[in-house]
């Protein structure tokens, strides 16, 4: 266990005019740690995720990241080129809708290979081999490597998106409702896969979800958001089994028992 955080957020706020997107959020994320951000629609989860991943400029606050060379950099003081390089190599971003994270009109293999090429790989055979290997890891059959994601089901597209993001061996992955819109059996398969990959690769991840079962299965720590504020945060199982804040109690008691 390293004692330096990978990502640090300090007083991150985003206002849309005078409406609050997220307000005064601070936390540290350590290597190998999975943080779930939960809350209902409109609570500011996705706004926060976008602010952390440099997809949306926060109104105020600091987000810093420890680079591979161990220097800690303020994300919003980097050049655009450096940020893009970071996003393509050391980070992953899994969108709720796979179409937002994939290129729908190039083959599955090319979708995975593209990120390798961004890293400078030029050997076609090797790229294809790595891509096929990764498709296998996310349980997509090798004979689908030349198909376009348009021809894939929702669950397959989501798994392809995960392969595309993880192929470069990132240290941090952002996920926005990774299992949203999938039926439960497909969801279970995806969760199992994610859980295994996160464990094996020692990934740190920030997962936005409204599904507390997903949070329990994937995350170590949880942050509960309401109206742009963090109302409670802590160990995932403690928050779910012994919620303190009124809103967390409401969320937990609203889970349907099967």
């Amino acid at each position: 266990m390293t004692d330096q955080p990978l990502l640090t957020a300090r007083s991150v706020s985003k206002f849309y005019g005078n409406r609050i997107g997220c307000n005064d959020v601070s936390f540290d994320l350590y290597p190998g740690e999975v943080l779930a951000i939960v809350g209902e629609s409109g609570s500011g989860k996705t706004t926060l995720l976008n602010c952390l991943s440099t997809r949306l400029l926060p109104t105020s606050g600091i987000v810093s990241y420890r680079m591979r060379d161990d220097t800690t950099r303020d994300l919003y003081r980097m050049s655009e080129a450096e940020r893009r390089f970071l996003m393509r190599t050391d980070w992953g971003f899994v969108h709720q809708n796979p179409a937002d994270g994939l290129r729908m009109t190039v083959s599955a293999g090319a979708n995975v290979g593209e990120r390798l090429m961004a890293l400078g790989d030029r050997h076609y055979g090797q790229i294809r081999e790595t891509a096929t290997d990764w498709l296998g890891r996310v349980e997509i059959a090798a004979d689908r490597v030349d198909d376009q994601p348009r021809a894939f089901s929702g669950g397959m597209r989501q798994r392809l998106q995960i392969a595309r993001n993880l192929v470069t061996g990132p240290r941090l992955v952002f996920m926005d409702e990774p299992t949203g819109g999938l039926d439960v059996s497909v969801q279970a398969r995806l969760l199992d896969l994610l859980r295994g990959l996160v464990q094996d690769m020692g990934l740190a991840a920030i997962v936005v979800t409204h599904d507390l079962a997903v949070a329990r299965l994937l995350s170590h720590r949880m942050m509960v958001m309401k109206d742009g504020h963090v109302v409670e945060s802590g160990l995932t199982d403690r928050l779910l089994d012994d919620p303190q804040a009124p809103y967390t109690q409401l969320l937990v008691s609203s889970i349907l028992q099967v």
């Binding site: 802590g234 160990l235 199982d237 403690r238 089994d241 012994d242 303190q244």
Partner: peptide
């Protein structure tokens, strides 16, 4: 017991 595991606050 749950407090001793950190599961309850």
């Amino acid at each position: 017991l749950k407090m001793a595991y950190g599961n309850y606050a």
